[in-house]
Design a protein around this nucleic acid. Structure first.
Lengths: 133, 133
DNA sequence: ACATTATGTTAGAAAATATAACATTGGTTT
DNA sequence: AAACCAATGTTATATTTTCTAACATAATGT
């Protein structure tokens, strides 16, 4: 299922919460972007919006830097990982349609609301968790 | 395990992303807060910060309103759910220590970094998913 | 007809984020 | 040692986002 990937790549977080979650400064995050290690989405007003995947990347960057790898090295490592992933995918799926963020959000919401509708009158707690994992 | 609950109650989302995820206007969200249906955390600068649980609540509110329940009714329903939950919990745990947001974030990060440290040199993708679900 | 409820709209202030420039620190290189 | 460079800090100024508060409005209940 691709729902998981959709959720993980949804640009939901502005830089503030990302700073707190990663313990990186805004300067660091922007610097990494400058070097293309992360490429967060942008709002209409040009504010960065990070997905869970982006946050993963930032945590990996932090780890690698802590181990002494420099930016150039990290770039190489990430490139390798990209290749790997492409190789895995290439062996299976034919190419799929590209979705805009807007479309992604629509899908996401309808997934969730669909579920809610089924259990609407009972008192169990809602479940946002399907946005993630 | 309480890690899940911690993650679900972490205030991570400012109002903008919440609007997109829920299809509610800022006015609506603030109005619901005015009536105590959601009580998002606040940043130092007084900006609302929503957790996954808060977003669940908003989606439930939306659903109930769509079904014709008014705010007062929703308040009652939520109160009932609270009671239920308390009854369930009361039968088990003794009261636990209350944590500040700061502390929660610290815990969260150390959980995550701890995991990362174990797989630091292999090239698998990082995993933010343990923040959620 | 009048009140109330839920939401829209607008104005002005404060907070968060943007870019860009310059500063600093710790290693490299010559 | 002097000069570099990489990674990050700091500061200034602009733009975007969010805040509260007030007033407007459409639909509903009385």
């Amino acid at each position: 299922m691709t729902g998981k990937e959709i959720r993980r790549s949804l640009p939901l977080f502005p830089i503030g919460p990302v700073m707190e979650l990663t313990d990186l400064t805004a300067r660091q995050i922007r610097y990494y972007e400058e070097h293309q290690l992360v490429v967060p989405a942008r709002t209409k007003g040009n504010q960065r919006m990070f997905s869970l995947n982006d946050i993963d990347l930032l945590l990996e960057i932090k780890d690698l830097l802590d181990q002494g790898v420099n930016i150039a090295g990290i770039k190489q490592i990430f490139a390798m990982k990209e290749e790997e992933k492409n190789r895995e995918i290439a062996s299976k799926q034919p190419t799929k349609k590209q979705l805009t963020d807007q479309e992604l959000r629509k899908i996401l919401r309808s997934e969730l609301l669909g579920e809610n509708r089924l259990k609407q009158t009972n008192l169990r707690q809602g479940d946002m968790s399907r946005f993630f994992h």
